[in-house]
Amino acid sequence: MSARDDILANIRRSRGVTGNEAPRRFAVTERLSGAPEGVVPARGQVEGAARIAMFRTQAEAVSATMAIVGAATVADEIGRYLRSHDLPMSVRRGDDPRLASLDWSQTGIDVSCGPSDGADLNAVSHAFAGIAETGTLVLVSGADNPTTLNFLPDNHIVILAAEDIDPDMESVWRRLRTRYGKGVLPRTVNMITGPSRSADIEQTLLLGAHGPRRLHIVIVENRDAA
């Protein structure tokens, strides 16, 4: 017998089942297709400005920084952030059209596109979602969004549309299913909650372990609609 068959047979022997029981199969099919929600904490369940405020409180509590700007000034905010930390005026970004369409021309930032080879100091990404409950960013991999940009550069700047801040993880799953289909995910979904850290030496918490030392979130409000 193959290892696969052996392991499954042993599980079934221990359980006292054959694997063909209709009620068991039904229970599994139901759960996989229905994906019932469990307990969803109340703290993220707020609307509008209160949700943005909850997201901000939670993200800042884990040492992320944040700016809330209008759509026209996103690139300016990136420039301001780089200058305020005395960083080189250059960024690496993916091909995401929402990043390509930013007005970089007046900022003096040298912009290059594509994944990182480890030589980039600053990266700009566009988030798929934010989670208010925990101050978490959700980034998805794809042609426009290299995963290496989330981890190799020292400073990670993430653009997030205010309307993409969801109350909880469950809302993110619903949106991912709408975009990719049920039971399908892109290669990587990164949930990021603050900059990289380690407490492996004497339980002393230090920022900037292997990933970014700084995480700056730029929330974009659609002020025309507001």
């Binding site: 939670q58 884990v62 409950e133 925990t134 101050g135 978490t136 399908v184 995910l185 892109p186 290669r187 990587t188 979904v189 990164n190 949930m191 990021i192 909650t193 603050g194 900059p195 990289s196 850290r197 990933g211």
Partner: peptide, 11 residues
């Protein structure tokens, strides 16, 4: 922590 810094889903 409420969430660890990186929760990564690989498919």
């Amino acid at each position: 922590q409420d969430m660890s810094v990186y929760t990564t889903f690989s498919t």
